[in-house]
């Protein structure tokens, strides 16, 4: 059992990293990563929704008829998204304004529906919670890396602290999002390729 848990953690963070490996949730990954803070905000909001929807769906999985499975999941996810949206509006107003449109759009983040369908509907509540948490952390981590790279290169700052006058504005503009994510994805593929090769040699 602990093995399975360890596997869930590893897969969420690395092997099946939602952004770099599975290319899920690309819209928020590209749109909200103009700075490290925004990236973390989006990542945490998504993680909250993912954990809650995973838990609830794993609890009610037996009550839902097969035919309306997907719509039922969507309603559950949409409710949690609206909840997060309203809470952020009330309590972290500034961040809420910046993330804007992309908070309600967490509903259609394929990552969440994907985990509900492929994991939460088949596993126990405890495992579903763990899966949601670590998939969410993998997502947040990826967004954070992308957001940091874009903020450092594009605005010469990190977490809003200015340290450099060299600003490659292209990186905070839309094209830079694609370029930065493309280069990071290539880097990850390169590294994981090297790693798996060397581990094969050892065997």
């Amino acid at each position: 059992m602990t093995d399975k848990r360890r596997m869930i953690i590893r897969q969420g963070l690395f092997e099946q990293n939602p952004v770099f490996m599975q290319a899920l949730g690309m819209c928020p990954a590209l749109a909200t990563t103009t700075s490290a803070v925004n990236a973390i905000g989006m990542g945490v909001a998504t993680t909250c929704v993912l954990v809650m929807s995973n838990v609830v769906i794993s609890i009610i999985k037996k009550l839902i008829p097969e035919k309306v499975r997907i719509p039922a999941y969507i309603v559950v996810i949409a409710s949690f998204v609206t909840m997060i949206d309203m809470l952020m509006h009330g309590f972290i107003y500034e961040l809420w304004k910046t993330l804007g449109l992309f908070i309600p759009l967490i509903v259609v983040n394929c990552l969440i529906l994907g985990r509900a369908e492929s994991f939460a509907s088949k596993n126990s509540t405890g495992l579903a919670f763990l899966d949601g948490l670590f998939m969410g952390m993998g997502f947040t981590g990826a967004l954070f890396i992308l957001g940091s790279v874009r903020e450092i290169l594009g605005n010469g700052s990190f977490f809003g602290m200015q340290f450099s006058e060299v600003k490659l504005f292209a990186f905070v503009l839309p094209p830079g999002a694609y370029l930065a994510l493309g280069l990071l994805a290539a880097f990850f593929t390169f590294v994981s390729g090297k790693l798996s090769k060397s581990s094969k040699k050892k065997d």
């Binding site: 008829p65 719509p71 039922a72 309603v75 559950v76 949409a78 609206t82 909840m83 309203m86």
Partner: peptide, 14 residues
């Protein structure tokens, strides 16, 4: 009915 029930619960919570 099941779908309706879920939506109602969700609407109430929201």
């Amino acid at each position: 009915l099941v779908l309706m029930a879920i939506t109602l619960v969700a609407g109430f919570a929201l």
